[in-house]
Design a binder for these strands. Structure first.
Length: 733
DNA sequence: GTAGGGTTAG
């Protein structure tokens, strides 16, 4: 359509804008709204230019609105029409801001708004503000939003309910609950949208209780709720996992004859799923006449999160269109249920099938699966894919990459990602601090926390957990006390149970057992199993039987099935030679059927994860692995290694059996495998599900020197970097 | 002389 790009050339000379009468009964205009496709619209456009009608501001505004708002039209075309209009009127400016505000580039809405203020003779009116405020909300810009709010007040439009409602929405998108509430309170005649904006906003911010309270007030003030209200209320129920209230909402909807559209059905379905009523969800799903991709994905996600993978898979295979969200639901279902291998296998299938393109969420879940497994080669492939596809690193992805590299043992790469990140939110900072902590670099973690103070990012409760964890792994008692004491007065974060546990752990490890007990006694909240567990762990290190029994008693009271507590206590008895107690405990464990969690180590070689259980013969190369292990032990013994059996005294009595059992530890099998098949230039990276025992620790140290190989071992709590006969934990773990 | 704000999944 040539006339669109060169309209002025084809303008008939006898029809200049001035000669057109503002006759709005022009028959052409009535055709605009009746267009059913873009060709018809373009024909009218051409005709209007030929006749000069296009240069009448009212007529062009009608055409422009159609080009911007009719469903078949594109924003690109609308923009071309706009650029042809010599003097857009206010209606036209407003319409352009409106379509940009809900487009993929809401920032354009703000830019057009600025252009309008500078270039046009118009001052924004009551229609302009809702659109431009929406644009600000879309990009979460509090500063722009506040500036607009100021303009609204200056223009004496503060009482407009439409504008107020959009301001409420804006403040919620920016997390400014109080400002939203302030605007809400200033509305003289609140309408249903005002209430809906508040209820939805509160629910989304996790203030479910407050949202439901507002719903009750709304009822008391006789404002009639609609379907959107109910979606908001259901969202609050879902956040609270309150099935009872959710069911009540469903009956409320029925009693009040509220129209149940697809969105509302989906919200009910989601509530049932999240609140744990699979039965209700299934019944509703089968009853729903109309289903969209949200419906299917909600079912799929529900099954996957409940661990019903076959049902989840069936939904994926049945749904009419598999978009990336559906795949994400399955991948994250596996990942969040600690089935990282399955998660990676689905990701692999997705890549092979090319049915959908992985997005940020896919990559976040997949990286987390790599972190769980310690699968660094796969994690690196995903990092390369991100670079190759030029996927922009948002804070979520940055956090996942840092976490993956940290948990796979490459703290340098984690730091590289951290320092090259364009944006760092509190999660990015916290992940980096956690990474340094688990690698025993307590000082560096604290320094990083100090650098964080120089930014505008405020630490949260997790940040402090990680900082205290760093102090624990590095034995920084004084520093830990300072941070802990600053939490509430300086940062406004009241210490939670995990912070108390950390402190008990720090004091206990340092041998300040008395102080640790005093600390527990003074706690303003009830000590949890983790607090007693920390004390018990410290008692093992320092061989304090009395306190260990006390801690163990409390621990088993809170968590009777805690086999770890028994193992720790029996270790302490063994260490202090209380054999009677050891056998009494062993008998008790046998009778109650308590078993130690089986040790398991994994190692990645050439992108394949190999898994070893204690004493297992399942690996196809088992024979070679055991011969290698024998060779290692012989070599080590020839240079003075003596097996340290204190770690399994409680389980096996005969001496040679003890040594055999030690050699069956899964991390030793993994080390032997790594020496046999890993690249000689690469460190051996091993992930162990339990804590590494003292004997394996000393073997790893010796192997690192004798074979001149770096070994990086992640156990349940932290990393050990073995190199040249030393470990990064300095034998403090 | 045309019009506006709030909605479900990952």
């Amino acid at each position: 359509m040539e006339t669109i790009s060169t309209p002025l050339l084809s303008l008939p000379h006898h029809l200049t804008p001035q000669t057109v009468n503002s006759n709005h009964d022009q028959p052409v205009l009535s055709f605009i709204d009746r267009c059913t496709n873009s060709n018809q619209l373009k024909q009218i456009h051409a005709l209007m230019i030929r006749t000069g009608l296009f240069f009448d501001p009212y007529s062009s505004s009608k055409l422009f609105a159609a080009s911007a708002l009719l469903p078949f039209s594109s924003l690109d075309y609308a923009r071309k029409v706009f650029d042809q209009i010599p003097k857009p009127n206010l209606y036209t400016w407003n319409t352009l801001i409106r379509v940009y505000a809900s487009s993929r580039e809401p920032i354009q809405g703000l830019l057009i708004f600025l252009r309008m203020c500078n270039e046009s003779p118009y001052y924004p009116n009551k229609f302009t503000f809702p659109f431009v405020i929406k644009a600000a909300a879309e990009i979460f810009s509090l500063s722009v939003g506040q500036a607009l709010h100021g303009m609204v007040i200056k223009a004496s439009l503060g009482a407009d309910v439409f504008i107020s409602n959009s301001l409420i929405h804006l403040y919620f998108s920016c997390g400014y609950l109080d400002s939203a509430y302030g605007v809400f309170m200033m509305i003289g005649e609140k309408d249903v949208v005002s209430w809906n904006s508040m209820i939805t906003g509160l629910a989304q911010m996790g203030r479910a209780e407050k949202a439901l309270e507002l719903f009750r007030i709304m009822e008391a003030e006789s404002v009639k709720p609609n379907d959107v209200t109910m979606v908001g209320v259901l969202s609050a129920c879902t956040k609270k996992l309150d099935l009872k209230f959710g069911r009540w909402v469903c009956s409320y909807i029925e009693r009040n004859g509220i129209h149940v559209n697809l969105t509302l059905s989906n919200a009910i379905l989601y509530m049932y799923m999240k609140c744990g009523s699979l039965e209700d969800a299934k019944r509703l799903f089968d009853k729903m006449e109309e289903k969209d991709i949200v419906t299917w994905t909600t079912m799929l996600d529900g099954y996957a999160k409940l661990g019903e993978y076959e049902a989840a898979r069936r939904v994926l295979d049945t749904m009419p269109r598999q978009d990336i969200a559906a795949w994400n639901a399955l991948i994250s279902g596996y990942e969040q249920n600690w089935k990282p291998k399955e998660a990676l296998s689905i990701y692999h299938e997705l890549q092979q099938s090319k049915i959908a393109k992985p997005d940020e969420i896919t990559l976040v879940s997949t990286l987390s699966a790599c972190a769980q497994l310690g699968a660094m080669e796969i994690g690196e492939c995903i990092h390369a894919y991100i670079k190759e596809q030029e996927i922009k690193l948002n804070c979520h992805l940055t956090t996942s990459l840092i976490d993956m590299y940290s948990k796979c043992g490459d703290i340098k790469k984690a730091l590289e990602v951290f320092y090259s990140a364009e944006r760092r939110d509190v999660f990015v900072w916290s992940a980096m601090i956690a990474g340094l902590a688990m690698h025993g670099q307590g000082r560096a973690a604290i320094d990083l926390f100090s650098s964080m103070q120089e930014t505008t990012i405020k630490p949260n409760s997790v940040t402090f957990t990680n900082v205290l964890c760093a102090c624990s792994h590095a034995g920084l008692v004084k520093e830990a006390k300072t941070f802990f004491n600053q939490m509430e007065p300086v940062y406004g974060i009241p210490p939670e149970i995990q912070h108390y546990s950390c402190m008990v752990d720090i004091l206990g490890r340092a041998g300040l057992l008395e102080e640790a007990v005093e600390f527990i006694e003074k706690m303003p909240i009830v000590p949890s199993d983790s607090v007693w567990g920390a004390l018990l762990g410290a008692c093992q290190i320092h061989g304090n039987v009395e306190l260990a029994e006390l801690a163990c008693g409390h621990l088993l009271e809170l968590d009777p099935g805690n086999h770890g507590a028994y193992v720790l206590l029996s270790n302490i008895y063994a260490k202090t030679g209380k054999w009677d107690s050891v056998s009494r405990l062993r008998k008790h464990m046998r009778v109650t059927g308590l078993k130690k969690e089986q040790g398991c180590s994994t190692i990645e070689v050439n992108g394949v994860i190999h898994e070893f259980l204690a004493g297992d013969n399942c690996h196809p190369l088992s024979g070679e692995i055991y011969s290698k292990l024998d060779e290692i032990v012989m070599k080590l013994k020839s240079v003075g290694y003596v097996p340290n059996k204190s770690h399994l005294l409680q389980l096996i009595e005969e001496d040679d059996m003890q040594e055999r059992a030690l050699n069956l530890h899964s991390e030793k099998l993994a080390i032997a495998f790594g020496l046999l098949y890993g690249k000689a230039s690469q460190p051996i990276r091993i992930i162990k599900n339990l804590r590494v025992c003292g004997d394996c620790h000393s073997v790893a140290k010796r192997v690192s020197r004798l074979y001149n190989r770096e070994i990086i071992l992640r156990d349940r709590y932290r990393f050990h970097h073995f190199s040249g006969g030393q470990c990064s934990c300095k034998d403090y773990w």
